[in-house]
């Protein structure tokens, strides 16, 4: 349930950027290597915002798949499972090049 404290952090950032305007949607980008459960996040968001000016603001989660690049052969590939191994070069170190994102990309604010 770290989604609950994460939602408090999201609220803080949203408030800074909304500057008092009504927030319709908060767009997040969440990498597959992040242990964030989108449904739980959305549920916790409704709990945390319930009694605030952000009540009713939607959380829209964009999932980013994990992607590695092999330091040996240079090949990049998308992971179905969190196995950080190059299929052609077992034992080579791979870099995680996508999948650990966790950020607020944008807000939809009501027109004034």
């Amino acid at each position: 349930m770290h989604e609950l404290s994460i939602c408090s952090s999201i609220m803080g950032i949203v408030r800074q950027h909304a500057e008092g305007r009504q927030v319709q949607t908060v767009h997040l980008r969440v990498g597959a290597m992040r242990q964030i459960v989108p449904d739980t996040l959305v549920y916790c968001w409704s709990l945390v915002t319930e009694a605030s000016e952000l009540a009713g603001a939607e959380l829209a989660v964009e999932r980013i798949p994990a992607k590695i690049r092999c330091t040996g052969c240079g090949r990049a590939q998308v992971l179905e499972e969190p196995m950080l191994v190059c299929p052609s070069c077992p034992g080579q170190i791979v870099d995680l090049i996508a999948g650990d994102e966790f950020l607020i990309t944008s807000l939809d604010l009501a027109e004034v």
Partner: peptide, 12 residues
């Protein structure tokens, strides 16, 4: 009726 504002801020 909405305006999109770019944030791009890490949640952590």
């Amino acid at each position: 009726g909405a305006e999109r504002v770019v944030v791009l801020e890490r949640i952590f």
